[in-house]
């Protein structure tokens, strides 16, 4: 398994190089450094001297190959430098933003998994009854509603009409949860429809397997069949779909963080893109790729742990 992991980590290197190259080409192709300077200089009408000075101060004054070499080396060494727009150390912001982002994304991830499983099991348990029909109906409805509508409606209903949670804001420490509850509920609900339907399908597929018939023949109660035997065997497809959803989770956080004023990494990235802050964008894209690769490796490890038939070699 160790050898497998090492191989996967080595495979990640060309992926990282490719992504960094693509970021460089895309950014330089669309926004030449002069443009970045113009955007980041505060003056209403920056003079060419001011632009030149900005380029020198931010190390954009070198020929392109030299720039590229510097770009790649710094990324590979995780030396992200300072933001083009604020001059702030990027690592400092990553450290402060990682906390809120992890809380939101982590809670959305775990709560989503739990609720999807809960409703899928419920639906499977009550299959072919009106409960199953209603869960299907609500699931299809949730799948049809655009994400942003859910965010706005959820914020309006829970924060404004029912006044149960703060509409926006964030505080550190334990009070952070006060601000996390509403975005997490919305994050969970947004993926609930599709997730429940998918997990229910996995469950029902398993319920037609031979071992279920054997268990029934032996007189095992239906609830035990479902919660113990079926659930364990449905774990593989569930793990695949769950871990592959990690990048989507990050994307979801971008919107949630922005709407709820949560100072996480999602909103940091969106702001950097809007401000044409190349230094921050490249750092966040690189980190995002790293997380994605880590997620993919984690999926493989989870397979091996969940299913003894799978060996990582």
């Amino acid at each position: 398994m160790l050898r497998y992991l090492l191989r996967r980590v080595l495979y990640a290197v060309p992926v990282l190089l490719g992504v960094s190259l693509a970021t460089f080409i895309l950014f330089y192709g669309i926004f030449p450094p002069e443009q970045i300077a113009r955007r980041n200089l505060s003056a209403k009408n920056p003079t060419s001297q001011q632009i030149q000075e900005w380029l020198v101060a931010h190390d954009y004054n070198h020929p392109l190959p030299q720039q590229f070499k510097k770009h790649m080396t710094e990324l590979m060494l995780l030396r992200f430098g300072r933001s083009d727009s604020t001059g702030e150390e990027i690592w400092t912001r990553i450290k402060t933003g990682a906390g809120p982002s992890t809380i939101i994304a982590g809670l959305v991830f775990t709560a989503s998994l739990a609720t999807r499983l809960f409703f899928a099991l419920w639906s499977a348990y009550f299959r072919a009854t009106y409960v199953d029909t209603w869960i299907t109906l609500v699931s299809v409805f949730l799948m049809s509603v655009v994400y942003i509508v859910l965010v706005i409606a959820g914020q309006y209903l829970m924060g404004k009409v029912l006044r149960l949670f703060p509409l926006a804001g964030y505080q550190s420490g334990w009070t952070a949860f006060r601000f996390a509850v509403l975005p997490v509920i919305i994050g969970v609900i947004s993926g609930l429809g599709g997730g429940t339907r998918l997990f229910r399908t996995f469950m029902l597929e398993e319920m037609n397997q031979d071992y279920v018939r054997t268990a029934r023949a032996k007189g095992v109660p239906e609830s035990r069949i479902l919660f113990v035997h079926v659930l364990k065997n449905a774990a593989i497809p569930i793990i695949t779909s769950t871990v592959l959803a990690i990048p989507a989770l990050m994307l979801g956080s971008l919107v949630l963080e922005s709407f709820f004023g949560i100072p996480g990494l999602g909103s940091y990235t969106v702001d950097a893109i809007n401000a044409q802050d190349f230094a921050v964008v490249r750092a966040m894209v690189f980190l995002g790729t790293l997380l994605y690769i880590a997620g993919a490796i984690l999926t493989d490890v989870c397979y091996a742990l969940a299913d003894p038939r799978i060996r990582l070699e």
Binding site: I152, R163, L167, A168, G169, S258, F259, G261
Partner: peptide, 18 residues
């Protein structure tokens, strides 16, 4: 000064008196 990127959210906070 609270950072509220979405104007709709900020407006609702104002209506709540915050």
């Amino acid at each position: 000064i609270t950072n509220i990127p979405e104007s709709t959210t900020g407006w609702n906070l104002f209506l709540q008196g915050y």
